[in-house]
């Protein structure tokens, strides 16, 4: 497919710092290759801004191949843009037409404060992970090989699907309630399904949910928006599993 060049108008959220009041600014960008990714388009815009002696737009990015979970962006009313099952770095400008106006906003959540422009602080996810998203292993030199424990194929598959979560926060961003339950559900499930994770299962789910609530995320109302927007296609089945694990944990914790 031959590449084309399009001219677009961008409405981008600019905010100096977490305390400043932000606003949407309008930018015109010409000669954008339809083969470029959305982030490359933003690079092009930043180059233009630097040449005009303006401050470039701050946005998160790292691997640019859809596995690190760093890129975010709420593009035209949807997390990671118009497609499903992709991150923003995997979104290409061929999804847009010449003359389009594109809205770009940061993730909106009380638990994800804006650092600058489009970059948000997602360390709330780190703190949830630290509250229980791990298995304790003796590392004295006699660590058991994880693969020595037989695991049913179906369970291994489900655990792996849950573990595909890259913690990008698209679930929180697209949830009307700003709920983090798909993230926490995936992290709880990935261990709850495996024999190594069962030992600490009760404390894990209780601690992770407690941390999730403390961070100020909203509640799940089962709209299903998160699983549609999740770049890794993580199912809300994981939220149901977390709900089950939580009930079990809350009832049996001594």
């Amino acid at each position: 497919m031959a590449s084309k060049f399009i001219n677009i108008t961008l409405k981008i959220w600019r905010q100096k710092n977490s305390n400043a009041k932000g606003a949407l600014e309008t930018y015109s960008l010409n000669d954008v290759s339809t083969d470029s990714s959305f982030l490359e388009m933003l690079d092009q815009l930043n180059e233009q801004l630097i040449n005009e002696k303006q401050s470039p737009i701050t946005f998160d990015h790292d691997c640019r191949e859809g596995i690190c979970g760093m890129c975010s962006l709420y593009i035209n009313g949807r997390a990671h843009g118009p497609d499903s099952g992709n991150t923003t770095c995997q979104l290409h400008m061929r999804k847009f037409k010449d003359g389009d106006t594109i809205y770009v906003e940061p993730w909106r959540s009380r638990a994800f404060p804006i650092i600058k422009d489009l970059m948000v602080d997602r360390s709330a996810f780190d703190r949830i992970q630290q509250a229980g998203g791990f298995v304790s292993v003796n590392t004295s030199g006699r660590t058991m090989d994880a693969n020595a424990i037989p695991i049913a194929k179906a369970d291994a598959d489900k655990a792996f699907q849950a573990a595909a979560c890259i913690g990008c926060g698209a679930c929180v961003a697209s949830c009307k309630n700003g709920s983090a339950m798909l993230f926490v559900g995936a992290k709880v499930s990935q261990y709850a399904l495996l024999p190594q994770g069962k030992i600490e299962a009760t404390d894990r789910v209780l601690n992770m949910v407690r941390q999730m609530d403390e961070e100020g995320f909203g509640n799940c109302t089962n709209t299903g928006a998160c699983e549609i927007e999740c770049p890794k296609g993580i199912s809300i089945e994981n939220i149901a599993r977390m709900n089950r694990e939580f009930l079990k944990g809350a009832l049996t914790k001594s």
Partner: peptide, 20 residues
């Protein structure tokens, strides 16, 4: 609680794309 979780609304939102 859910309203509090998102103090600043999106300027442009398209929730029809992912929920009923």
């Amino acid at each position: 609680q859910n309203k509090k979780a998102r103090p600043v609304k999106y300027a442009y939102n398209n929730p029809k794309a992912n929920s009923g």
